[in-house]
Simulated scan of single mutants.
Amino acid sequence: MFIRSERLFLRPGWPEDWQELLVRIADEAVVKNLAKAPWPYTADDARWFASQEQDARCPHFFITLPSSSRPAEIIGCVGLAQADGEIELGYWIGRDFWGRGYATEAARAVLRLAKVLGHSEVVAGHFIDNPASGSVLRKVGFAPTGRMGRRFSLSRGYEAQTVEHRIALGSPSDCDGGSDEDLAPMRAA
């Protein structure tokens, strides 16, 4: 499965992507904001992640930046996962690409896909010391639930406080479906 957004191309990972993945994610400033990534992040971790099979209902994608002059460059990852019986959105962007709206654009694209896949609600969270991620979630239509949680971070080695968010996507629709009104929560604020 592939997704094209305004500036990005989201695609599945392939085993040969491991070296480029390692270059982007082997940065403590990136990994400390993730729950499931270890620190230090090693070549074996990158090989394992790049070769993961896709789940048809909860796909994950490498976020790439297309160019007419060179191969598309991996700049991050975004995807859906099952978490405690709910569908959860997760993402990361390499530090060299922070602050350019790429996480917001990729998250919107995956939320549109989530609606097509029949998910009516998606959850997400961020560590309390990562307010930039909370900003991304609010821009794509998530609302804080008012609940704080605790989540184990493999890279930190301890449970850290999180802010929980949720978005209602409404009834499933197809890619060509009806009006754009159903996507209002995902529009730029």
Rank of each mutant, 00 (worst) to 15 (best):
P185S: 07
A188F: 11
M148W: 09
A114K: 08
A109L: 06
F152T: 01
L154G: 00
F97D: 12
R138S: 11
G178M: 01
G134S: 03
P131A: 05
F127L: 12
D176H: 14
S173K: 07
F127V: 09
P185Q: 08
R95F: 00
R151I: 11
R156W: 08
R100L: 13
E159T: 06
F97Y: 15
L113W: 13
G125K: 15
W98K: 00
H165T: 15
I128F: 11
A143Q: 15
P172N: 03
R147P: 04
P172M: 13
S135D: 00
Q161P: 15
V140E: 08
M148T: 12
R150K: 11
G149S: 05
E121M: 15
N130S: 10
S153N: 15
H126Y: 14
D176Q: 13
M148Y: 13
G157H: 11
C175L: 12
A143S: 15
G157T: 06
L117H: 07
V140T: 13
S179C: 02
E164V: 01
L117A: 06
L111C: 11
G125W: 15
A132E: 03
E181I: 13
A109H: 07
R108H: 02
R100C: 05
A160E: 05
A103C: 09
G125S: 10
D180Q: 11
S155N: 11
G149W: 06
G134Y: 08
W98D: 04
A109E: 00
H119A: 02
L154V: 13
A114S: 12
H165V: 10
R100M: 03
V123T: 15
T145N: 09
P185E: 07
S155W: 05
F152V: 02
S173E: 14
T104Q: 12
G101W: 00
L183C: 06
P185I: 08
R151S: 10
R147Q: 10
G101Q: 02
Q161R: 13
V123F: 07
L111F: 14
G125M: 10
